[in-house]
Structures are given as C-alpha cells and as structure tokens.
Design a protein around this nucleic acid. Structure first.
Length: 411
DNA sequence: TCTGGGGTCCTAGGACCC
DNA sequence: TCTGGGGTCCTAGGACCC
C-alpha cells in the first residue's frame, strides 16, 4: 500500500492532500484534542491552519509514514521527529490511528482474497500473492490481474497500492518499489541484468545496514557486483548460510513459497518512557508501568487465544544498549499476575545501574488455548498456579546481581 | 530534545539425555 | 590421560523487516 498510514489520514482530512504530512509520534502525542474528541466538527472542514505542525512537536517519537510531499524534504520512515522537524518544520503531524489502520488493512486484504486466494500476510500494509493458478493470471505477464487487484482495492478503500509481478517473492518485492505510487512493474529472469544488477545491495530484502556496510567495505555496492563474487568468497566473509544465500539472491533466485497461514511465535508489549527512568529513583513509576505492560500482554494472549511457556523482559538503557532475560516455565500461562511475577524474576537478573529508556515484556513458546485443555491425555496441560509457583521458586537465587539486591528491593 | 513498537529468524554455548 | 556423536531445550544477543 502506498504511504499507507498517511493515505488513511488523507481520506479523513482531504484538505491536506498535496501538503507535507507526517504520521507518527511517541507517547507525547501532538495536541489532537482539536482533531479527535470533537465529533460535532466535520473533519473535512477543519481549516488547514488548525492542524499541528512538526516544528511544535515535543517528544521521542519516530515517523511511521510521510506523504510524498513531505518526502521531498528528505523526511522518511523511522526518522526521529526532532530531526524531521529540522528538515520540514512546516509539515503537518498526525498521530497513528491504529484502529483505523487495522480496519483498512483487513479491507484491502479481504479484497485481494476475493480475487486471489493464495495470499501471504507481511504486515499491515504488504502481502505476497501467488497467482500462478488464478484464471487469467498469466495474461500480459500478469499485468491484467495486477490492474484488476489495484482497481478493486481502490474501489474498496479509496487507497492506492503498487504491485510488483515476478517469478518469485524476492524479485516481486523489488519490482513493487519500481513504480510507486499506484504503479505496476513486471520483472522476469531476462530483466536481471538490466533492472536488478544496477541496484544497490541494500535493495535486497534481507540485506540491512550491517551487511551493506560489510559489503561496502569489500568494495561491493551493487547487486551486479555481488553476483560477480564466488560463493566461496561470500561464505568466507558472511558464513555458510548467509554467504550461500547472497550468492543465490544476487542471481534473482528464491524458492520460498507463499505462506498463506502461520502461527505466532511470540507476543510482546514495550514502551519508551517520556524521559529516562532510574531503577531506584523512579521505582514507583517503573513498577506501575511494568504491571501495566504485563496486563496488556495478558489481554493480548487472551484475546488471541494463546498461552506462553516462556516469559521475558527487554530493557533499553539510556545508551541504547539492549538487555533481555527470559525464563521458561513448567507449563503455560496467560495470567497477568503470573506473567508479572516471572517477568519480575527476570528483572532481578539484569543490571539496573544505568538509567532506562525502555521496558518491555514478552511471551514466547506459545500454544493455542484449544491445545491446552485440562486433560493431560495429549501430554499438554495448563499448569496450575501452584505448579507455576514451584517452578518460579526453584529458579530463585539469580546468578548475577551486579547491583546487589537492587532488583529485590524493587520487584 | 537524536533514534517507536511489534514481530521473525539465526547463532552459539551450555545443560542434559541416549 | 583421553575423552563419540547425536539430539533437544534453554538462554542471550543481534540482524532485519513492516
């Protein structure tokens, strides 16, 4: 979907069309009292001058999406708001409306499914579609069906999307970037040298900042240059798995299937504080936030029908270093109090000297509640709170307390 | 006043088991 | 006085993606 979060807001506030708008923000939201909470005011007629500007934004948020007008100023996804404000102070800033995003996400996906049933979900605004066997899917190399899908999505949502058509997911993903917004791009094996090899390695889905930096240090900038390297050389520098993979993708080869359904692996809740917190000085606030996160995680598990065998925590310190700890239980839980208790044990094992910027709680090794019926016949069971307590007690006396006893005082 | 939140997958060492 | 070869599970960290 093109500039998904921003485009959704433009449906609500069409008067902002063509203007630089950024969506995002952290805990300290823009003053949206003006925009939300006033149902009597028709959003379409709120004067542009009444919208909050990026230059007035205060807080730690990042940009989720920028309209194409804002992108011209160098503003883009994942950029800190403060940095963006310097580049484009006059941009209008709006918070993410997650309910609305979910609504449109479901809408465009169900529209696709009516046309092509083999769809892989890749997040709120992206999917892979296998239309090998969709009737008419091969006409004009796929262009006819791509157009049909675009049209159906726009009719259903008022939003545009860009489609890449290719023999595999790797190339389709790259192709989808070629003609944004509202574009279609068709790439096949014959286009490898002309369309793929001139691209930067970073355009490969799976090569991020670290791998790109390493490649650059080896003098490799483009996918064509990557393709010229031997598998032995790549394996020597990137390891057996990554090296062999790089050799394949540089040739446009990818045999991953389109996966139409999958089970979640983990669920988590985390929050970045408005200001860095100290474990001792801010222990009341921290404790309350911690309990709140555990409660929200428990709600998520219950709503989606899962229990977890592993509970973990995540901290980000003021220097941006991350620490994680986790603990597996004898059984499965989705109880907020259990989660809070186990997560509290994890917290005792991590140094709490530096100030904290972020705190998170994670549930992993998930099992569907349907598979956890009380009967032990299938060998899986919902553990009782008593058994869970035992499991927790058996693991007390944490190995490292760099800050002797501090965790105990706190949690 | 730089730098969100929710995910997946991989690696690597150690425990433990057969 | 030298010490297998699987396998699984647990834990911590890190790269990457949307």
């Amino acid at each position: 979907m093109d500039a998904f979060f921003a485009s959704i807001e433009l449906l609500r506030y069409p008067q902002l069309k063509g203007l630089p708008v950024v969506i995002g923000g952290g805990r300290r939201k823009v003053d949206d009292a003006l925009l939300g909470g006033q149902p009597q005011r028709d959003p379409r007629f709120i004067p542009v001058a009444d919208f909050p500007l990026l230059k007035d934004y205060v807080g730690r948020g990042v940009i989720t999406t920028a309209t194409y007008a804002a992108r011209r100023f160098g503003v883009g996804s994942a950029m800190g708001m403060m940095k963006a404000a310097k580049l484009c102070p006059q941009a209008i800033v709006l918070p993410v409306d997650f309910d609305e995003v979910r609504k449109y996400s479901r809408l465009f996906k169900s529209t696709i499914l009516e046309i092509a049933p083999l769809m892989e979900d890749r997040g709120v605004d992206e999917v892979y579609i296998d239309f090998t066997d969709v009737p008419g899917g091969q006409r004009e190399g796929g262009r006819v069906l791509a157009r049909l899908i675009q049209k159906a999505i726009t009719e259903a949502t008022g939003l545009t999307c860009s489609v890449g058509v290719a023999p595999n997911k790797l190339l389709a993903k790259m192709a989808s970037e070629f003609n944004k917004p509202n574009g279609i791009s068709i790439v096949d094996e014959d286009d490898l040298q002309s369309k793929i090899w001139p691209l930067k390695c970073r355009k490969i889905n799976g090569i991020g900042p670290k791998a790109d930096e390493k490649l650059a240090a080896l003098g490799i900038q483009t996918i064509g240059e990557l393709a010229a390297l031997t598998p032995e050389f790549l394996i020597q520098h990137f390891g057996k798995s990554t090296g062999a993979w790089m050799h394949e993708v540089a040739r446009g080869r990818d045999d991953r299937p389109v996966v139409i359904s999958s089970e979640p692996v983990s669920m988590s809740r985390e929050t970045t504080f408005e200001r860095d917190l100290h474990a001792v000085r801010d222990k009341t606030a921290l404790g309350a936030l911690f309990t709140e996160l555990c409660g929200r995680l428990a709600d998520d598990l219950a709503r989606k029908g899962y229990a977890a065998k592993t509970i973990g925590i995540k901290l980000r310190y003021d220097d941006f270093k991350i620490a994680t700890r986790d603990q597996s239980l004898v059984g499965y839980t989705l109880d907020a109090k259990n989660i809070r208790q186990v997560a509290g044990q994890c917290l005792k094992r991590v140094p709490l000297v530096k100030k904290l910027r972020l705190l998170g709680v994670r549930a992993a090794t998930l099992e569907r509640l349907d598979n956890l019926t009380k009967s032990a016949e299938d060998g899986i069971f919902q553990v009782s709170n008593e058994a869970l307590d035992q499991s927790i007690r058996a693991r007390e006396a944490p190995e490292i307390i760099a800050n002797e006893g501090l965790g105990d005082q706190l949690f």
